[in-house]
Design a binder for these strands. Structure first.
Length: 207
DNA sequence: GGTGTGATCGTA
DNA sequence: ACGATCACACCA
């Protein structure tokens, strides 16, 4: 089987997640398991999480069994379990001397749509397949077994097929968090119909 | 199109 | 007790 695009150099990931995040827009995320057909999405929505300085980050309180991948090699995949039922995937980055990651929030399905629909019966149309961080993982078949794997070695790959990131991405606050809600650390492909939403909810739960 | 709510369980 | 969420019901 053939993996589309080229792999970015390791140095692409070894930077502040705030710099990496917008450059992940329009890149491909490919899951090519041994012995079954690959599926792929084009990334359209991301959020950056820093480490010790970001109260919303899983790495804020240091290393634990769960967030270990965030402290590993840049270019790794950090997959975590949340709400008792969902997996979400991050690209591991590294602000020099600190942990960091970029949450992959949504993508446009580009390869293996029939397999994605089989994994996501609730999705009526392509725009429902990967328009959310947990939906994206379901569509690609990404779960905890892939936590800590290398995006430069597979079976989950980050690939660059030459489509540049948007010149003027939409920048907003992060979604679904209750801390550090003032930071504008979410980037979306302008006008994308495959994003989870273009504008964050006006009111968020406060406690 | 929009809003509100229950599900479900690992984590710290 | 609380999530870096989702699907579905319900209203428009």
């Amino acid at each position: 089987m053939r993996i589309p695009g080229r792999k970015p150099p390791r140095s692409f990931f070894a930077r502040d997640p705030l710099d990496v995040a917008p450059e992940l827009l329009h890149k491909l995320l490919v899951h090519a398991p041994d012995g079954s057909e690959p599926t792929a999405i084009r990334i359209v929505e991301v959020e950056a999480y820093r480490g010790s300085t970001d109260p919303a980050s899983h790495a804020y309180r240091g290393r634990t069994p769960r967030n270990g991948a965030m402290f590993g090699r840049p270019g790794g995949l950090y997959v975590y379990f949340t709400y008792g039922m969902h997996w979400c995937a991050n690209v591991v980055c590294e602000l020099p001397g600190d942990a960091g990651a970029v949450l992959l929030r949504a993508g446009e399905p580009v390869l293996g749509l029939e397999h994605m629909h089989a994994r996501r019966p609730a999705a009526r149309r392509p725009r429902d397949l990967a328009s959310g961080p947990a939906r994206l993982c379901q569509a690609l078949g990404v779960d905890g077994a892939l936590d800590g794997t290398d995006l430069l070695a597979g079976p989950v790959w980050l690939r660059d097929d030459g489509v540049p990131p948007p010149d003027a991405p939409l920048v907003t606050t992060r979604i679904g968090i209750t801390r550090a809600i003032e930071q504008q650390w979410r980037w979306v492909v302008p006008g994308s119909r495959y994003a989870s939403r273009l504008v964050p909810p006006v009111s968020r739960k406060v406690r």
